[in-house]
């Protein structure tokens, strides 16, 4: 299986298009960092505009606020909405691409079971997804820490502000990246499933993105009917649960409790739902593929 996986990884990483995603992430992260380095004050003023009536913010405060942790959080918020496209580029191509090139039947001539073949294909997509995420973590987190330094992290939510001491931030990022890996694997699993039904990779990629866009809109809409019925079961609702690691508990008088997570059961529930989606998508993909008449 390992040999098979190595071959699949070799296929993925020898294709130039694989590096489009790495290049795109590098460009986006660098451009955001550059913009914030040059004009971070405007961004901070925008963030604090709602608070300026009650608090006074010195230039020193603003420069401390614009630290590597905040910049990374802003990049992740923006990128984790775009990253599914980059993930689906590879995962959506995994089976459909082979079908398109006419190599799928050839691949299955080898003495490898279809289930094993599918698992290896999926694992290769997951490894690519994790590699992409690690690359983003290195650039967005460590790069921003290098450029902007570190300080307490302030998370601005729609109804409140969570301030986390600098010493209490790093483990949260590791947990958040771990969670994001599962969230993006869900996308990879969806694209992988759709890939089984298609003869070229464009279809699964566009279908994956369409589903994500529709689900994201539904997740962000504040309509009570959807809130209670549909939203809790959309995977896009749970993909942003990585942010939950940055929501902290506080004492009755508002003092942050170090090492706390405001609602860990909610994160675990979201994680379970995403794992359920991954298992469901992969199972259906394998089941369909096993029954499929491979003609190309």
């Amino acid at each position: 299986m390992w040999e098979l996986l190595k071959i699949e990884l070799l296929k993925i990483f020898r294709r130039p298009r694989t590096y489009i995603a790495f290049g795109a992430i590098t460009a986006i992260v660098f451009l955001v960092q550059l913009a914030l380095k040059l004009d971070g004050k405007s961004y901070i003023d925008l963030l604090l505009s709602n608070l300026s009536g009650s608090f006074e913010f010195s230039d020193e405060f603003k420069s401390k606020l614009l630290n590597g942790y905040l910049v990374c959080f802003a990049i992740l918020t923006a990128l984790l909405i775009q990253m599914p496209l980059l993930v689906s580029l590879i995962a959506g191509d995994s089976i459909a691409g082979e079908a398109n090139m006419g190599t799928l039947r050839l691949s299955l001539i080898r003495p490898v079971g279809r289930t094993k073949y599918m698992i290896v294909k999926f694992l290769a997509s997951v490894i690519y997804t994790i590699a992409l995420l690690i690359w983003m973590a290195v650039l967005a987190l460590f790069g921003s820490m290098l450029i902007f330094g570190t300080n307490d992290m302030v998370v601005l939510r729609s109804t409140g502000i969570d301030q986390i001491a600098a010493s209490d931030v790093m483990w949260r990022y590791f947990a958040a990246f771990g969670y994001a890996a599962v969230a993006l694997t869900t996308i990879a699993a969806l694209a992988f499933l759709l890939s089984v039904f298609a003869e070229n990779s464009i279809g699964p990629i566009i279908a994956t993105m369409s589903i994500i866009i529709v689900f994201t809109i539904l997740s962000e809409m504040n309509i009570p009917f959807y809130d209670d019925s549909i939203k809790p079961w959309l995977f896009t609702t749970h993909m942003v649960a990585w942010k939950g690691f940055f929501y902290v508990k506080a004492t009755d008088d508002g003092v942050t409790i170090t090492g706390s997570i405001a609602n860990l059961p909610a994160i675990l529930k979201s994680l379970t739902i995403l794992l359920g989606y991954i298992a469901g998508f992969v199972f259906i993909a394998i089941w369909v593929f096993r029954k499929k008449d491979i003609l190309s």
Partner: peptide
């Protein structure tokens, strides 16, 4: 001191909604 109301649009923050209680909402 007195504070002014704090609210940012959800479309800006992309919050993870963990379902706060009514008491928490009133406290805010």
């Amino acid at each position: 001191f007195n504070t002014r109301e704090y609210k940012l649009p959800k479309g800006v923050t992309f919050d993870y909604d963990t379902g706060g209680t009514k008491a928490e909402e009133n406290k805010i």
